[in-house]
Amino acid sequence: MKFWRTPLDVDKLKIPRGELHIIKERCKGCGFCVEYCPKGVLQLAAEFNSKGYHPPEAVKPEECVNCDLCEMLCPDFAIYCVRVEEGEKEVTQ
């Protein structure tokens, strides 16, 4: 990660890590989460759910930083992420 100035508490900062939960049967395949994930974690799956939509799937789940944008943008309450504390990386320049 690049900083334009080094934060004073850089040694205490950790990059948050999120765990994605996708409720596939509730998804209507709008693609908002896929389009607006800042880390490009998601893509639409090739498989269908029972309503015939393509739900998202996590292709790079380890890159999720728990920003909650997919959870906020999802119109169908079908995706959310939970912060997991273990395995969070230190901030390095």
Binding site: K28, G29, G31, F32, Y53, M72, C74, D76, F77
Partner: peptide
């Protein structure tokens, strides 16, 4: 409908 903005506004 899919891609309707109403669910987002409810969130």
């Amino acid at each position: 409908c899919p891609t309707c903005g109403l669910g987002t506004t409810i969130t």
